[in-house]
Amino acid sequence: KKLVGWDEVVKDGLSSDAVITWWRSWAKDALPTATMQQQKVIACPNEFFYFDYAQDQNSVKKILAFDPYADDRLSSEQKEYIWGVQANLWAEWIPTMKRIEYMIVPRMIALSEIAWTEPVTRPGLDEFYRQLVPQFKRMDVMGVNYRIPDLQGFYKVNAFIDDTMVNLTCPLPGIEIRYTTDGSMPDKQSSLYDGALKIKETTDFTFRTFRKDGSPSDVVRTKYVKAPYAEAATTPASLQPGLKAVWHDFRGNLCADIDAAPIKEEYVIESVSIPEGVKGDIGLILTGYLEVPADGIYTFALLSDDGSTLILDGELLGDNDGAHSPAEIIVQKALKAGLHPIEVRYFDCNGGVLQMELVNDKGEKIVLPKEWLKHE
């Protein structure tokens, strides 16, 4: 018999013939530690390969980009101990085989791409979906309950000043899209999206895609907010670089409850992230100002595992709250040049992630400039 253990046992003095299954994405030392001990490693970090986790627009893209050999702490000898990749699907919340199909297709196809091809030959996301078009047609014939690729062309919250166009695209051609604006669930009788929509007022959309046989796939909700540029705050007498971060000893499921938990430590940080040394039961409240250099519509990506919220100018702009696996929301707000009060809340109790980035005009995510973050 051969022992295969989850990465919690990697430092338990096991012999070199043990195999380590690296599942904790946040346990960054598991891979180099195991391979240094000449133990084979199966890579299935939950952020990439837990297929029971809800999917979003980044799920397949992240799988295609995964490369365990890219860790620069690994020697060429250590890389020889990486046995392969694996995906896990825990079925206690998955009631039917049809739901299993929905959770694993097309993610398992992306998994096969990285398992059997060199990184330099892997397709990008657009090419991956282009190659899959005929395969989706085969799955239609087979009756596979696959997940339709994400609609593109919008964010969770979209800002505009006068009027704007709602332009949706889907990597899978010929997909039927229906929508409502009253919060109800779209069905086959709902309005058909058949081209760009012009809107002049704040509008909530619920979009739903349908397969060739008429069965529904994902539902996505998005908000288009018409508002003038938010006024900048009066400059305080003195400002210091960075944001204030208060760590509360918190175990709960809602960001609003963090205040009631006792305070453990306070920090000043240069990015929206978990301060070094903060672990265990985490409730973080980050406060300060965001100083933008010019009038404009700014786009922010907020990633967290578990919950997080973003309040800007006293408005709840990004709601990523609740206990969940790694999930990202992207939101926009029209801002005048200057200072804007910001508050980010975050909680986790089992090793997570918090990250806020700026999305530029090309849709690329870049590090939020630390010069923009200030506190009194």
Rank of each mutant, 00 (worst) to 15 (best):
P95M: 04
P95E: 13
T96M: 04
T96Q: 04
M97C: 06
M97W: 13
K98Y: 08
R99D: 13
R99Q: 15
E101M: 10
E101Q: 14
E101F: 02
Y102S: 11
Y102V: 07
Y102C: 00
M103N: 15
I104S: 04
I104Q: 07
I104N: 09
V105C: 11
V105K: 05
V105G: 03
P106H: 06
P106T: 05
P106K: 02
R107P: 10
I109L: 15
I109V: 09
I109W: 15
I109N: 09
A110M: 04
A110Y: 01
L111W: 12
S112N: 15
S112D: 14
E113R: 04
E113S: 07
E113P: 03
I114D: 05
I114Q: 01
I114S: 03
I114G: 03
A115C: 15
A115N: 10
W116C: 06
E118S: 14
P119T: 00
P119I: 01
P119W: 02
V120M: 05
V120R: 11
T121F: 10
T121I: 08
T121W: 03
T121M: 13
P123Y: 03
P123Q: 05
P123H: 04
P123E: 02
G124M: 05
L125Y: 11
L125P: 01
D126C: 07
D126N: 12
